[in-house]
Every structure is written in structure tokens, then in C-alpha cells.
């Protein structure tokens, strides 16, 4: 398959925050790959490391965060070896990012047009002002902002939340990046606007042939837009599968819990929502065993002391849980 060509490959990435209280392993050895034109969802609760992982791809990790191990390869190039200047050129040009809160992500003192055009001019010295402006208007129209000619001279506070997120998307895609990282782009928006933005992203993804890493805690959004899904818990990927596979055949207890705690519209008799009990672990003092162990209903003795390996369940479906190996015990005795 030509889709098999890898756009980005992450291997055993580790990111730590060095706080005064100690080292926090926000991302503790995650690996995945993403092909061209593919949309991957990264799901997890807050603090699971999903945003940190995205920031380390685009080189936006702030002090005291540091990549402590692993590699990130983008189109065959090692991103971690980039100089700051190379990284800057790379950002916005090949990979761009949109953020959670469109209300605060646009600079309040510059016009939308100014900020859109800036994204172009920082990566292209030759472009004229008129060209940049024309391109900005074109992009604004593409993301469904009417009256773009006039809107381009307005300030962010004159835009509604949904409009600002559209403008953010326009700004992210203006350089035609190969990868778009969307960090909870719909969380801060009204439900009706959320649907519109998702629709827009799906449409633009097809049109512009952009791969997307879609970070969210909302499984419904994932079902809507993604090809495959990684579920993260406490800095690790616990389960990864194609979107259909994950929804209809979840294997990891955490994923099962997540699915059970989300309302589903497709079932005739809505089941009771079941919350996952307990609170996320303290990343300053992670347990020696499985990170999910303390909250897991199926927790076993081995889970207390050993981190589970990834079980390859076929068709790119992997899950990190000892349960998959439980049956082996019986086999051995045979």
C-alpha cells in the first residue's frame, strides 16, 4: 500500500518534567507511526501525557520539560537532532498545530489577517504582501468564514469562539503542512459548533491531504474523524487499534472503562454510564507495576510488580495488559 509510507515515526519517546519535587515522567516510552493522509486520535484523560507528546513533536516543550529518550523521525529526518533554527523553520511549515482554547490563542492586539499572513511570511521571504493577503483571504473562505475580505481586518475579539477556531485552522493550514496536530480543538466550544468544526476538519483533511494527530478526551470525536486510535494512560499508550476495531472490540480494561463511561447514541436502550473509579496516579511516584493497576477491576498479582508488555492482537491492534497472557498459564500446563 502506498499509505504504508511513513510520515512520522515515534519510537520509545520519553519526556520528563524536572520539577522541584522531582522528575515527572509525563511521557514514558510511547511508540507509534503515522502514514500520509492518515488521522490518528490520541485519547486519554487530562495528565495522561497526550499534549506533552504532541508538543515534543513540534518542539514546543517548555522548561522544565525535556525529551529524555527515544526518537522522532519525520519523513526520514530525526527531529530531535534539529537545531533550534531548523526546528523553527519546520514548525508551521511542515507541521502545524491548533490548540484547545481559541479565545486565548490568538494575539488580541493584531488583526486576524496580520496573524494569518505572518504564518506565511515567516516561512517564505519572497512572498509579497498582496500575495500573502490573497492567500489569507482564500484560506479564510476555505474554512467557511463569510465576508473574508472584511473579516481579515478585524481583531480576534470581534470573532466568536467558533469563528476563531476556524481562523486558527486557516492559520495552521496556510502553509500546507503535511501534519496537523490538533490539541483538543473542540473542547472549549459549544456542542453545535464542535460538530461544525469537526466537519470542517474532515473536509479539509480530504482536500489538503494532511495527516492529523487528533488529541482529545472525547471518544465520540475520535469515532467521527480518525482512522486509528491510541489510548494513553499515565504517559503510556495502553491500547492502539483501528477506529472500528477499538470501538467494537476493545481489549484493554482502561479502554473498556472509557467506552462504558461515554454516552452512546447508537444503542436503542441507553445503558447506565459506568465511571472509572479512582483517580489518575501521581506521576511523581508511579507504581512499579501496571500504571492502571490501582484502578483496574481485573488487577492481578503480576500487575503489582511488572509493567505489562504490549500484546500484539493482530491487524495493528496492540494492548498493554497482562490479561492477554493469562490464558498462557493454562497452555503451559498442557
Amino acid at each position: 500500500m502506498e499509505d504504508n509510507k511513513k510520515l512520522i515515526e515515534i519510537k520509545d519517546l520519553k519526556v520528563s518534567f524536572f520539577t522541584p519535587a522531582g522528575e515527572v515522567k509525563a511521557v514514558d516510552g510511547i511508540s507509534y507511526e503515522l502514514g500520509y493522509n492518515e488521522v490518528m486520535g490520541v485519547v486519554g484523560e487530562s495528565g495522561s501525557g497526550k499534549s506533552v507528546e504532541a508538543y515534543s513533536i513540534i518542539g514546543l516543550l517548555q522548561n522544565p520539560g525535556k525529551v529524555t529518550g527515544g526518537s522522532i523521525t519525520f519523513e526520514g529526518e530525526d527531529l530531535l537532532a534539529y537545531t533550534p533554527e531548523q526546528m523553527r523553520q519546520f514548525r508551521g511549515n511542515k507541521v502545524s498545530m491548533i490548540f484547545q482554547n481559541p479565545m486565548t490563542c490568538l494575539n488580541p492586539v493584531y488583526t486576524i489577517g496580520n496573524q494569518l499572513m505572518e504564518a506565511l511570511t515567516v516561512h517564505d521571504d519572497k512572498i509579497t504582501k498582496e500575495e500573502a493577503r490573497a492567500r489569507a483571504i482564500e484560506m479564510l473562505e476555505k474554512v467557511g468564514i463569510n465576508n473574508a475580505e472584511k473579516r481579515i481586518n478585524q481583531y480576534p475579539h470581534e470573532f466568536s469562539g467558533g469563528m476563531r477556531q476556524r481562523a486558527m485552522i486557516a492559520m495552521a493550514l496556510i502553509c500546507r503542512p503535511k501534519l496537523l496536530i490538533a490539541d483538543e480543538p473542540t473542547t472549549a466550544l459549544d456542542v453545535s459548533i464542535q460538530a461544525q468544526i469537526l466537519e470542517l476538519m474532515k473536509e479539509l483533511q480530504k482536500k489538503e491531504n494532511t495527516s492529523i494527530i487528533f488529541i482529545t478526551h472525547n471518544l465520540g470525536v475520535v469515532a467521527e474523524i480518525c482512522d486509528k486510535v491510541s489510548v494513553m494512560y499515565a504517559g503510556r499508550i495502553v491500547e492502539q487499534a483501528g477506529v472500528e476495531e477499538l470501538f467494537y472490540n476493545p481489549q484493554h480494561p482502561y479502554t473498556k472503562g472509557l467506552l462504558a463511561s461515554q454516552p452512546r447514541l447508537d444503542e436503542e436502550e441507553p445503558e447506565r454510564l459506568i465511571p472509572i473509579e479512582g483517580t489518575p496516579i501521581d506521576l511523581l511516584n508511579p507504581p512499579t507495576g501496571c500504571n492502571f493497576g490501582p484502578r483496574c477491576k481485573n488487577c492481578m498479582k503480576i500487575c503489582l510488580t511488572k509493567k505489562p508488555p504490549y500484546a500484539d492482537l493482530g491487524d495493528g491492534h496492540i494492548s498493554a495488559c497482562w490479561l492477554h497472557f493469562k490464558d498462557l498459564k493454562g497452555k503451559k500446563e498442557e
Partner: peptide
């Protein structure tokens, strides 16, 4: 530390320009 500075960085704006254009006026 504001979000719009992160946006500017994500766009690939140079550090100098971030300070002079984005941070200073605000």
C-alpha cells in the same frame, strides 16, 4: 506565558519577533 505566544511559536515565528511583535505590545 500566554497561549497566543505558543500559537506564534507553533507558526514558526522567530524568538526575536515573538518578543518584539507579540509579547511587547501586549
Amino acid at each position: 506565558n500566554q497561549d497566543y505566544i505558543r500559537t506564534a511559536r507553533a507558526k514558526g515565528v522567530t524568538t526575536k519577533s515573538i518578543v518584539i511583535k507579540h509579547a511587547l505590545r501586549n
